[in-house]
């Protein structure tokens, strides 16, 4: 067995999608740093407590300056644990004041850190949408991926959020979970596993949530290390390529997302950011050079890892794409 012989660009050619271009910038995804209270085994960011890459107040202000110059409707704040960035709350307040939707990608356990005791009500007050990592509805697979005791703490945090009104059907406080496979395999059908989560979390813990997003593990960062150490890398890459769907490629998130790094560099997605694959071919590469006109139809930088977003029903920061 060997890694895919069809390059991702050739796969795009086969679907008439080459060269892949952005179609708009609907989401400004800001990665505010790699500092995190957890060090999950699948983390493509390789985030953890010892990381020192943290977005400065100056760069955070530049992000908000750029946002104010545009009508980009959604701000998606990620990390690391984005809540640990000293500018996080100011960015939330500023984005909301500009009338934009704000999503935070949370590991949930951060809400139990003593210094973050007032975080849940802050998020509720600003109607921040929470997309939270919860790879399974039992402790075993969750703790295997995210660390001992993480499941139990996550449940405690979810109960706090539910008590504030997060996760209620048709409510204004939206709480979504993210399923990641706890190993070298693709995610299940999103609708099927969402039904399992809803039934089991409700039955066992009385928990409610709005939606479950299934996200494939990308073959980069710590997950790539796991694939290589376990002898699964080649097989996983072949699996991703075999599951390639043109309909998923047509809807990949990078076509409508712009990713900002902790240091103000611009990328097509958070995965390219972690691989150091900066935007190129003439489009602006840093916040200081931001030009929506030049970025909204930019050519996307691709690589073998892109198969991770086009396998099966596709994968994005919002789950399946087709």
């Amino acid at each position: 067995m060997s890694v895919p012989v069809t390059t991702f660009d050739d796969a795009l050619r086969g679907a008439g999608l080459f060269p892949l271009r952005a179609s708009a910038v609907r989401v400004l995804q800001i990665n505010v740093g790699r500092l995190c209270n957890l060090a999950c085994r699948h983390c493509h960011v390789e985030a953890g407590p010892s990381r020192r890459e943290v977005m400065s107040a100056t760069t955070a202000a530049l992000c908000m300056h750029v946002l104010a110059q545009t009508t980009i409707p959604v701000v998606d704040i990620t990390g690391g644990a984005p809540e640990l960035n000293p500018s996080f709350r100011w960015m939330v307040e500023r984005s909301r004041a500009l009338g934009r939707e704000v999503t935070v990608r949370s590991n949930l356990t951060i809400m139990l850190v003593p210094s973050q005791a007032d975080l849940p009500p802050f998020l509720a007050d600003h109607e921040v949408e929470i997309v939270a990592s919860l790879p399974y509805f039992t402790a075993g697979p969750t703790d295997a991926q995210r660390g001992a005791g993480v499941f139990e703490r996550s449940i405690e945090a979810i109960r706090m959020l539910n008590a504030l009104g997060y996760g209620e059907a048709d409510g204004r406080l939206r709480l979504h979970f993210v399923y990641n496979p706890a190993g070298a395999y693709l995610p299940p059908a999103q609708h099927a596993i969402e039904a399992d989560f809803r039934r089991e979390l409700g039955r066992r813990y009385g928990i409610v949530f709005n939606a479950l997003y299934t996200i494939a593990n990308m073959p980069i960062g710590r997950f790539r290390e796991f694939l290589e150490a376990s002898g699964n890398y080649d097989r996983y890459m072949v699996r991703l390529a075999e599951a390639y769907k043109p309909s998923a490629a047509a809807n990949v998130m990078c076509r409508t997302t712009l990713s900002v790094g902790w240091d103000g560099a611009l990328y097509d997605c958070d995965f390219n950011q972690m691989l150091g694959l900066a935007i190129d071919r003439g489009a602006p590469t840093r916040l200081q050079e931001f030009s929506l006109e030049r970025l909204m139809e930019r050519r996307i930088v691709t690589g073998p890892h892109c198969y991770g977003c086009t396998a099966g029903a596709g994968s994005s920061c919002r789950g399946v794409v087709s």
Binding site: T138, G140, G183, Y185, P187, A189, A192, I193, D196, R239
Partner: peptide
């Protein structure tokens, strides 16, 4: 085994 995991079954 792979298919079961990818369909969302657990151990």
């Amino acid at each position: 085994t792979q298919v079961c995991l990818e369909k969302g079954s657990n151990l």
